[in-house]
Amino acid sequence: MKDPDGLCDIFKRKAMAVSAIVKDVDSLDNAFEYAIEICKKKEACKMMNPGFDSQAKSEKIISAPGLSEDMAEKFADICMEQGIDYAQDSLRNHLSGIDIGFTTADWGIAETGTLVIDSSMEELRLATMISEIHIAVLQKSRIVKDSYELEDRLIQSMQKSPNYMAFITGASRTADIERVLAIGVHGPLELHILMLEDL
């Protein structure tokens, strides 16, 4: 094992404790395949707000705004082959929801199983908010012990204003009715974390 401090294990345990689904992947291609599988299995995004979506939803939609151009092209091709729509236009045209938001996390915090995603780009931010399932790829080498360890890096980002930094831990949740835990309020109903081997 190449995880001397056990950070990957702690991360995994903590993330799973808050209902995140955590899997290992060995490449980005592998992660794309996973996303496609999940997308095929799920029901199409149901929320309908009449008059706001540019098109009625007949097919499922994946968005992956943070990818490099060639990776995005590759992912879009795979989606097309599978009959899944790969969102090319602004997600503001899809505010009633998309099926999968696919992102790559900047950091992971082991102590709490938290993903740290610089969401300054609006499209990326929206993908993590309006998707029913958020799938994030996290490189194992980017996992740190606790939030204090990221302090300097976070400050660097914050100094380059504007900046929108998101700590994401598990899916969106509430306990506002009778303190009963319910997953999926305003954000994703599920969070999948794909841990990419790069150690």
Partner: peptide, 10 residues
């Protein structure tokens, strides 16, 4: 341990 979201806006 932490809330689902902690958002830092600058």
């Amino acid at each position: 341990a932490i809330t689902s979201y902690v958002t830092w806006i600058t």
